[in-house]
Design a protein around this nucleic acid. Structure first.
Length: 109
DNA sequence: GCGGTGACTCTCG
DNA sequence: CCGAGAGCCACCG
């Protein structure tokens, strides 16, 4: 098992419920500021029963882009208090300004 | 080792 | 925030 993916997934697992993080943020917090793509790759190989809340990870626009079109993320986020909206073109997105994971605040804990 | 690829991001129009 | 181009990094044939 690759340590890189483990580190990435560890950060994703650390995302609090009702909060969102971008691929870039997760990669940076994991120590790989240039490996944002690896975050997506790591999530793409996640098993179904994984304990990793991959649905809390979105791209830099707060857009839900995943194999399911993002609808699955929206379904998981809704019960956590995150209100996602579907755009006219079918893609889903959330308000990053409100739900973005504040990593700085987490460190103070 | 090499070229192709991707749940990314940045910069320039 | 749209489109094109380039950078980055790990995986695959």
């Amino acid at each position: 098992v690759s340590e890189t993916r483990e580190a990435l997934l560890a950060v994703v697992r650390a995302i609090p419920a009702g909060r969102l993080a971008t691929y870039g943020d997760v990669a940076r917090r994991a120590g790989f500021p240039r490996s944002a793509r690896e975050v997506g790759r790591a999530l793409s190989v996640l098993p179904d029963g994984s304990s990793v809340p991959w649905w809390r990870v979105v791209n830099r626009e707060g857009r839900l882009v995943s194999p399911g079109g993002g609808a699955r993320q929206a379904e998981h986020l809704h019960p956590e208090g995150v209100d996602a909206e579907q755009l006219p073109d079918g893609s889903w997105r959330v308000d990053l300004d409100c739900y973005r994971w504040d990593e700085e605040a987490e460190e103070m804990e």
